[in-house]
Every structure is written in C-alpha cells, then in structure tokens.
C-alpha cells in the first residue's frame, strides 16, 4: 500500500502557480528523496501534506486517509521535521519530548522509555540543559527525535541537512538510515550526495512538476550513456590506437585526450569485451578500464534544464 499518495495536486500563490498537477506515490518502508532547486515547491508540497496549506485542486492521501486543510487527523500518522525546527527554548529536551508525548496521548511508561531511547539514538542523552543554548545541529537532531516519538508511519523531513556542517550532515543521515527500519521517509533536499546515500527512490521537482521519478538505480540506468573510459600507458601511440578503435563495428564514437580515451558504445556491458579483445590483440598496456556511471548530479542538471 502507498503510505503517501498525491493525485493531481495544484497550488498557486496569487498569480504564481507553484505546484502544477503533481502526482506521485510513496510505498511503505522506502526512503523517498524529494529533489528540487530552491523555490521548486518542495516545502509547499510538504505543508500541503501536513494540512498547513490548502491545495487549490487535487487530493492528498496519507495511509489511505484524505488530508483535510487546517485540522487534519492524518497528522497522527506523520512525524514532521521542519527545515529549521523551533522549540520552546525554556525547556530541556526531555521536557520537550514529554510535552510531545502528552500531546499525542502516549502513556507515561511508554513515553519515558521511548524518549530515553530516542534521545540516545540522536545523541542528546547527555544534554540536560535548556534548548536555548543548542546549536543548529543539536536542534535538528532533537527535531528528528520529536518527529519519531509517536512512531509515525510517515516521516517527513524538510531539507534536514541543508544548514549543517559536514559532520552534522553525516550524523543526521546516519540517524535517518537507522530510522528507515521503523518508518517510511520522505526527505527533501538539494544535496544530491545525500540522496545517493540513503534514498531508495527519488522524484525531481522542477517548476511545480515532477520531471523525473524512479529508483536511484533505475534512473542511473536510464541515463547511462554507455561510455567507457580507458587509460593506457604513456608510451602508447595514441593516434594509431584511436584509428584502430574507430574501425570496430560496436564503437559509435570516440575521442582521446592525453593517454585517456573515451569510447561510446551502444551497450557498454555487451560490447565491452570486444574492446578488451582488441586491446589484448594489439598488446596495449592498459592502466584503467571503467564503465562510466552517470552521477545524479548530471542527471539532475539534465532534467531541470
């Protein structure tokens, strides 16, 4: 069953249409990376899922239940981490989690054990002082703890790593990797290496539309250019090798630079051995042989152009 379902959702602010006919689904126990440039409409979409903003048309369902604007019951299944979470600065983390637990109606025993467990999960079990003095990273971690407190079926994180230093980012990603065992995660970001690290599937949002959707492997596969890169020993006569490679029937294009040669093939896995056979026959000393992987970065730049 899809935990989250958007069906032809549109939203405008005045004249500007921010979300256009957006539809996608997030299956249970997956990590969905919601990617887009700043201002692409990621936060708007998330706020509509939470019922904080009303969509102009279309339908949003969480766990099969329709989201109603303003006062939605679907939020009991959702844990939300805002991009910059704000807390009551006069409370300690423990008190804050207690308030969250009481608000959701958890019983006392369960709440105590769970808040203890979560605080140690996010590495705040030693922080007994008030939230006032917390760094951004600490607030972000407390944000994850509060979002996971009621064991939500869906965890929504709005750019959880954007404002953090590399160490803080790694910590948040590690915590999210742990959290994926318990819940489904929707995670918006514009940092593509984060997506590659923890997401199963992604959707790329551009100008209010989903321009690309699928699993990370699928997308990379689809955008694979089937390019081989060879690096040969410096003494090799490049001109001669280049002409020889060009004559091979499976090669569709080639170019060289120094002692590196790029070779385009119809299918790198199928015709790769032909290239290798040719190199062996010609006794070319090969230093490196690589099937080029498309980076998400290149894919992203290609689809949002």
């Amino acid at each position: 069953m899809a935990i989250l379902e958007l069906n032809k959702v549109s939203k405008s602010f005045g004249e500007v249409e921010v979300i256009k006919n957006l539809s996608f689904q997030v299956p249970e126990h997956s990590v969905f990376g919601f990617i887009g440039k700043n201002g692409a409409g990621k936060t708007t979409t998330m706020k509509m899922i939470l019922g904080f903003l009303a969509q102009d048309s279309g339908e949003i369902r969480v766990c099969g239940e329709k989201v109603a604007y303003g006062n939605t019951k679907t939020n009991r299944n959702i844990g939300y981490l805002p991009d910059v979470p704000e807390f009551y600065s006069y409370m300690s983390p423990k008190e804050y989690l207690q308030l969250c637990g009481e608000v959701t109606g958890l019983n006392k025993e369960l709440m105590k054990s769970r808040s203890k467990e979560l605080l140690s999960l996010v590495g705040l079990d030693g922080a007994n002082r008030r939230i006032r003095g917390f760094s951004r990273g600490m607030k972000q971690r407390l944000g994850i703890a509060q979002a996971l407190l009621n064991e939500p079926k869906l965890l929504i994180c709005d750019e959880p790593t954007s404002a953090l230093d590399p160490v803080g980012r790694k910590e948040i990603l590690d915590i999210l990797s742990l959290a994926r065992e318990r819940t489904t995660i929707v995670f918006s970001t514009h940092i593509l290496s984060d997506v590659e690290r923890i997401c199963d599937s992604i959707g790329v949002l551009d100008q209010g539309k989903l321009v690309l959707q699928g699993t990370v492997a699928e997308i990379k596969d689809k955008y694979r250019k089937d390019t081989l890169q060879l690096e040969v020993a410096p003494k090799v006569n490049m001109e001669q090798l280049f002409v020889g490679l060009k004559k091979l029937p499976s090669v569709t294009g080639t170019s060289y630079n120094g002692n590196k040669i790029d070779i385009q093939l119809a299918n790198a896995e199928q015709y790769g051995p032909d290239i290798l056979a040719f190199l062996v026959k010609e006794k070319v000393p090969l230093l490196r042989y690589e099937i080029m992987e498309p980076s998400l970065e290149n894919v992203f730049l290609e689809v949002v152009e």
Binding site: L50, F52, G70, N71, T72, K73, N75, R76, I78, G79, Y80, P82, V84, P85, E86, F87, Y88, L99, C100, V103, T104, G143, Q146, A147, L149, N150
Partner: peptide, 16 residues
Amino acid sequence: VRGTLVNILAKGMPRP
C-alpha cells in the same frame, strides 16, 4: 512568528 507550534500541530493536536 517563531514557528514553535508547527511541531505540536504536526502531531495531530487540534487547533482549537
């Protein structure tokens, strides 16, 4: 203004 209610309301707390 500060947005401190967001977390609480996202937990399904009724606004009234």
